[in-house]
């Protein structure tokens, strides 16, 4: 049983990262109905930016006390900002022109963007995995037979804080309201005087910033990254978004944690586990799309002819 609970803890930490990435997919899909393929790579870029900032700050090992808090905050915020701006730039350069094009066009463009970002990162740090400094001291506590590490608590905690902040933003601010209105009906929102371009840009800004946060967290959590990291993580996070109900923010969080749990448990209990996790996750994706395309929390839209 301890093994099971251990995998729950591991799964929740993985899930926290997936949830943060899934939010970006779901927000962008909610507002312009585009599967932003490049989003997973923006997440990897978050790890790369964090690494660059840490290197710039001269941090290469464990820190403590106030300096630790300072370094973490600076790195996190800077990575989020840089990723957010990258997201806005991608939208502006590649997607905006195609907003009214046949649906295939922006989707293909997004795949292209993803390849470009991956190649840029490959040129930046080479094709092999690179290590990420262990900034946060990582004591672990035993709860019964289950071991919980400081990193895991930090990952889960940060994910929950970010999500709470996002919910507040979406439901309590004017911009949040504009985002929801635009997602519902772009033309009507425009008639109501909402600036669609700005609203969509802000959506990309926030979604990509959250991916940046996930990128930092994943660097700290895994202690390693590589240019291709975002492909698989992105697919899993997209699965999470679909599982939760695409376009639904709470659903993305739920889906993220569920995918994390599914992955951790599959790794543990399926014979030869680790090598089948991708197959399991994609099967979940296919099954959800076939049997409940609106996801767990999504509403099925009424048909119109």
């Amino acid at each position: 049983m301890d093994v099971f609970f251990q995998q729950i803890v591991n799964g929740l930490s993985l899930g926290g990262i997936y949830a943060l990435i899934a939010l970006g997919y779901t927000m962008v899909y909610g507002i312009i109905e585009l599967i932003n393929f490049a989003h997973g790579d923006v997440y990897t870029l978050g790890t790369f930016f964090s690494l660059a900032i840490l290197t710039g700050l001269g941090v290469s090992g464990e820190m403590h006390g106030l300096p630790l808090v300072g370094v973490v905050l600076v790195t996190l915020i800077a990575a989020m900002l840089l990723c957010g701006l990258t997201g806005v730039l991608i939208e502006r350069l590649a997607y905006r022109r195609l907003r009214n094009a046949p649906r295939l066009a922006p989707l293909i463009t997004a795949i292209g963007m993803s390849f470009i970002l991956e190649n840029v990162m490959q040129l930046w740090h080479g094709p092999s995995p690179i290590s990420f400094p262990e900034v946060i001291p990582n004591p672990a506590w035993a709860l019964g037979g289950v071991e919980v590490s400081a990193k895991q608590i930090a990952v889960i905690g940060l994910a929950i804080v970010m999500m709470a902040a996002l919910q507040l933003f979406i439901y309590k601010t004017k911009m949040g309201k504009a985002m929801r209105a635009t997602a519902q009906d772009r033309d009507a929102a425009q008639l109501m005087g909402i600036d669609i371009n700005t609203t969509i840009a802000v959506t990309f800004l926030i979604g990509s910033a959250l991916a940046g946060a996930a990128g930092f967290v994943s660097g700290v959590y895994y202690g390693t990254t590589w240019f291709f990291n975002g492909f698989e993580a992105g697919l899993k996070a997209f699965t999470a978004a679909v599982l939760g109900g695409i376009g639904n923010v709470a659903g993305a969080m739920l889906g993220g944690f569920l995918i994390g749990l599914i992955e951790a448990i599959a790794t543990q209990y399926i014979p030869g586990g680790a090598q089948w996790t991708n197959v399991v996750v994609f099967s979940v994706l296919v099954l959800v799309l076939i049997f409940r395309p609106s996801g767990l929390l999504g509403e099925s839209l009424p048909e119109k002819v």
Partner: peptide
């Protein structure tokens, strides 16, 4: 730069 090339072509 191969993948860059595919990406640039697509975009």
């Amino acid at each position: 730069y191969r993948f860059m090339l595919y990406g640039v072509i697509l975009v």
